[in-house]
Structures are given as C-alpha cells and as structure tokens.
Design a protein around this nucleic acid. Structure first.
Lengths: 185, 185
DNA sequence: TTTGGCATGTAAGCCGTTACATGATTTA
DNA sequence: TAAATCATGTAACGGCTTACATGCCAAA
C-alpha cells in the first residue's frame, strides 16, 4: 500500500528540465554541486533513465557538437512530460521513511551513558555536523548574501535555510547531551 | 571509496541480540513497534539475513516449541558476533546521505512563492509532521513519563528525544515560512 | 604535452520493497 | 468458529552503488 519511492528521479529530472534544457552531464553536475545535500544520483543511473524517458515521450532531445567530435545531447521536456510532472507535484506527499542513520542506531544500541563509547560517538557526530553546518553556511553566503538573490530561487533558498536550521538544532542538542554525560576517569 | 551503507541490518541485529536472544519474528516486531521511526526491515529481509549470519558463525540458534507444532527459532550472539559488533560500533560514522525527501524536492522545483502549489505543499507537510510530532510525544509519555524509566534505556530515550525536537523545529520553521508566503486571491 | 575535466555508456551486485505462500495459535 | 496474530519462508523486481570502459576537449 505504501508506494514510497517510486522512481522519484524521473520527476526530479522533469522538474529540472522544466526550467531549461539540460544534458545528462549537466544534471549530474547539478546533483554534485547544487543539489547534493538533498538529492543525488550517479551518472550510471541518469543516462539510462534519460533514454528511457525519451522512449516514453516525456522528453525530447537534440545533439550539439562540442569541439569537432564530442557530442552533447540536450533534453527538453515535452507536453506529455509537463503533464506528468504537474500530476506528481499535485500528488500527496509520501509517508516519512525511517531515518536509517548510523549514529542514531549506534546510540540506541548503547547500554548506558557511562559507556566510554557514548562520549566518543557524540564527539564524532558533533564533528560531522559541525563540518556540514559550516559548509551549508558558506553556501548560503555564496548564493544568498544579497537581498536580490533571496527573492529569486525561492525554492532553493527555502531548502537551504531549512537544512541550516536542522544542522544547528542538531548541534545544539548534541552539545547539550554531551555536557550531561557522566564524567569518566 | 565511500562505503556508505554496507549491510547495516546485520549490525542492528547483532546489537539487538547482544541484549537478549530473539527470534526473527521478535526482531520484526521491534522494528514495527519500537524502532520503526529509526530503522525498519521487512521480515523477508530479516529471515534470510539471520540464516546467513548463522552460517557465518555470528549467531547461534535454538528451537522452541510454541503450542504443539509451531516452532520458534531463537538466536543468540556468539563470541565472533560480539567481536564484529564491537568493531562496527568503533568504526567511524559514515558520511551523511542526501535527504531524498519529496517535500524538499518539490519545494526546490517550485518557481516562486506565489505559486498556489507552494501554500498547499507547506500545509500538507505541516499536517504530516504534526501527526508525527503528536505520535512521538505520545510515545514519550508512554515510555519515559517517570524519572526511573528515563534512567534506563539511555539510548532509546536519547533518540526519541532528538526525534521529537527535530519534528518541533521543522514544524516551527514550516509555520514561519507559511506565514511569510504572499497572499493569493 | 600532459593532466584534469567533459561526456556518455554498460554491467554486476546489493539492499529493500512487494507480493506470493503456508500453516499454527490465540483471542473474541 | 472465525478472525487476528504468530511464525517462517520464497521470488520477482526496482533503485542505487560500484566498477568497468571509452574517448574528446581545454588548460596548464
């Protein structure tokens, strides 16, 4: 009954192509550079998916020459693709999935707060999220420092801001818990 | 290089068995009732994994009769299993994976805050997280209402508390953003 | 001219979901 | 006695990762 993750990559690609035409490599780059914190797919998944979508008539393509021999294949969304994208955008959100986060699971499996591993685990998790927090803030500065940019790219601003807040909240909680751990000698 | 999620289920099972012996069905129940927000596996994955782990000598088993015919197979962790579990617990945490959350992706793909879909999306996401927030708080009341219980089950208390805070923070942010959306007529 | 990035592809395997399947036991 | 739950299993399939593979182009 749940349905869960039914080829979401397809809709992501449609959504990206709805803004402008892109080649497979461009999509790969978007995942690596701009979207990586929220969605990622390998090129080995992207290229076959694109051809499959073209077979289904959701997208069309044209080939452009880069240099003298290298061909770059740009894809455009079709009417049919736009309809499918719109249908997905209007579909109810799927149920939240388990976090499957290894820190969380290791923490759960610990017997007591006094276990030396506990402190180590918290410290490691803090370092991991501190790094991410810094990285996300740097991206915010880079992308949305000025008011003008904040007006454009509404969706992008939104999700980046939410990600930053999430990291901050998690760091606060982690540091609080670490402080309350029993001291070992 | 990344390694990421290398059969974590195996270690979860080892961690659970480190506390007490369990049958496959018990593990399934734990995922459904106690752990479902953080980890979940279907029984069709659990049972083959258990037999595989027994073949590898990580766990052993004994069979108990329920009623007159029904056999229940209890598994215990072995020395070898304890060693592997400990090694995993000491392993560095894996890198955070992309959220792959459909709300986040839909939001990113929206062109502007003025799109009627935006408001609808926020409202739906709020409802989704409100429900989860209520559910998690009910679980907290049920499990950790009294001080005594809070001392035991350290790990469980920790991750439940963090999950509640996470939902709360997300709800606050969602409501704030919704308030700031341009009004439509 | 060499190195790194551009550009696209195939294939194996793992993890997880869904569905199919069977039968016993307990509870209402 | 019927329905719900206990208890365990197999099989098909899809999504994602990893590895293998090829060749062109731009910049140092």
């Amino acid at each position: 009954m749940t349905m869960a993750q039914k080829n979401v990559l397809k809709y992501i690609i449609l959504g990206l192509l709805a803004h402008r035409e892109l080649a497979g490599y461009d999509i790969k780059k978007l995942f690596e550079e701009e979207l990586g914190d929220f969605w990622y797919s390998n090129h080995s998944q992207i290229y076959p998916e694109l051809r499959h979508m073209e077979d289904d008539g959701l997208i069309s393509s044209r080939t452009e020459l880069v240099g003298k021999k290298l061909e770059k294949k740009f894809y455009q969304i079709t009417k049919s693709g736009q309809q499918l994208l719109s249908a997905w955008m209007h579909e109810p959100l799927s149920q939240p999935v388990p976090t499957r986060d290894d820190f969380t699971m290791k923490l759960y499996l610990l017997d007591s707060a006094a276990d030396p591993l506990t402190r180590q685990l918290f410290q490691e998790e803090i370092a991991r999220h501190e790094e991410k927090y810094q990285y996300l803030q740097a991206r915010w500065q880079l992308l949305f420092a000025d008011e003008e940019a904040r007006q454009k790219h509404f969706g992008h601003r939104c999700i980046l801001q939410q990600a930053i807040l999430r990291e901050k909240q998690r760091l606060d909680w982690l540091r609080q818990e670490l402080k309350n751990l029993p001291v070992q000698q």
